[in-house]
Amino acid sequence: MRGHWLLPALCLLRCFLCVQITDSQANDVFTLLMERYNRSYEPDTSEYFLRMINVKESIRRQAVLNSPSSDAPHNSSATYGINQFSDLSPREFRERYLTSEPENVPWFPKNKTGGHQSEAMALPAKFDWRDKNIVTAVQNQESCGACWAFSVVGAIESVYAKEGHPLEPLSVQQVIDCSYQNQGCNGGSTIRALSWLMQSQEKLVDESEYPFKAVTGVCHLFPVSQFGVLVKNFTAFDFSGLEEEMKQKLVEWGPLIVTVDAMSWQDYLGGVIQHHCSSHHANHAVLITGYDTTGEVPYWIVRNSWGTSWGNQGYVYIKMGDNVCGIADSVAAVFV
Rank of each mutant, 00 (worst) to 15 (best):
L98R: 07
V258N: 03
S100K: 05
E168D: 11
F127W: 15
N66R: 03
R14M: 10
S151F: 04
V215L: 12
Q141N: 07
E244C: 03
L269K: 07
G187C: 02
A155H: 10
Q62Y: 00
S100V: 03
D322V: 08
Q173D: 01
D23R: 11
Q201C: 07
G314A: 04
I327K: 01
P68Y: 09
V205Y: 11
P166K: 13
H220D: 01
T79P: 03
C185I: 04
L170V: 08
D87I: 04
R91A: 12
P102I: 06
N66L: 05
L88K: 02
S278N: 05
E119C: 08
E243K: 02
N27R: 04
K247N: 01
R94A: 12
S118N: 13
V231N: 00
A72L: 14
H276C: 12
D206P: 01
P166A: 14
W148P: 06
E207T: 03
E95K: 09
V272T: 13
L250C: 00
S171H: 05
R91D: 05
D292E: 12
E119M: 13
L256I: 06
A78P: 02
V272N: 04
N312K: 00
L6S: 03
N323T: 11
Q183N: 15
S70H: 07
E168L: 12
E245Q: 13
V251C: 01
V159N: 02
N38I: 07
K249G: 00
V229N: 00
C11I: 02
S143R: 14
N111T: 00
S200M: 14
S195C: 09
E101S: 12
Y80W: 14
G114W: 11
S279E: 10
N140E: 14
V135S: 05
P90R: 10
Y315T: 04
V55M: 13
M121F: 08
E296S: 15
A122R: 15
A72C: 14
E157D: 03
E244M: 08
A328D: 13
Q313H: 10
M1L: 07
M34V: 08
E207L: 13
Q20P: 03
H165G: 00
A332I: 07
W300D: 04
A236H: 04
K319Y: 05
N66M: 09
N312C: 10
L33M: 07
R94I: 13
S67M: 14
R96W: 12
F85D: 00
W107Q: 11
M1K: 04
N75Y: 04
E142Y: 08
P124Y: 15
D128N: 15
S179T: 07
A9E: 14
A282L: 15
V138H: 01
H4C: 01
G311L: 10
E142I: 12
A72W: 13
I59A: 14
K110G: 05
N83T: 14
D267F: 07
S278Q: 06
N312F: 07
E92W: 05
S189V: 07
E35C: 10
W196G: 00
G290P: 08
N182T: 05
S77E: 14
S200G: 04
T45N: 02
P124C: 06
E243D: 10
E103A: 15
Q25G: 01
D292K: 01
T293I: 06
I301G: 01
Q199P: 01
K203M: 06
A72Q: 11
V297Q: 08
E168P: 04
V331W: 05
D177S: 09
A149S: 12
T289P: 02
L197R: 05
